[in-house]
Amino acid sequence: MSNATMERPLIGVIGFFDEPGALVQATQKVRDAKFRSFDAYTPYPVHGLEAAQGLKRSPLPYVTLVAGITGCSLAFLFQYWTSAVDWPLIVGGKPFNSWPAWVPIMFELTVLFAGLSTVAAMFAFNGLPNIKRKSFDPSLTRDRFALVIEAPATGEEEEGRGAHRKFEEVDASQFLKQAGAGEVRALYAEGWF
């Protein structure tokens, strides 16, 4: 690391773990210590980690539901408009509003709207694609697990009083070491650009 990085703002303290179990236990401790913000980084999904982090359920299913209902309704309305309002044609002696014939398209648009909206909303909720930060360490995509206790973002005033534990570099580092982290170091912002 050059001196240049040292002048960049501190974004947090990172602690590395070799075992997923150790990470889950440490995550629980960090959550119980009421640090304001922290996140875990793993090479693959780890069972029980969401519970240890105390993450709430994602609002994603509601996006899917609303998008699905929208797709279904739009498909019906558009077919009704073309077949019964804008250009009515008698086909096979059936009524203009022959809704059974439209059901397959209503189904397809339900799935299409729900599917695409879910993917888009998933990216939005996850803050992806991430063009602000580089990967902290290549080993996090391979065989190590990490927990980052984050510093308050620049400009955001730290509110040490009340429910949260005030972030201090030394305190957070010691906490991670005590929680079982093998390697602990400070993280400085490294933009992509």
Binding site: G92, G93, K94, P100, A101, V103, P104
Partner: peptide, 12 residues
């Protein structure tokens, strides 16, 4: 159930 209905309804 709907597929069975649709095919029969369509062909009439």
């Amino acid at each position: 159930g709907f597929s069975q209905f649709l095919l029969i309804w369509y062909a009439n």
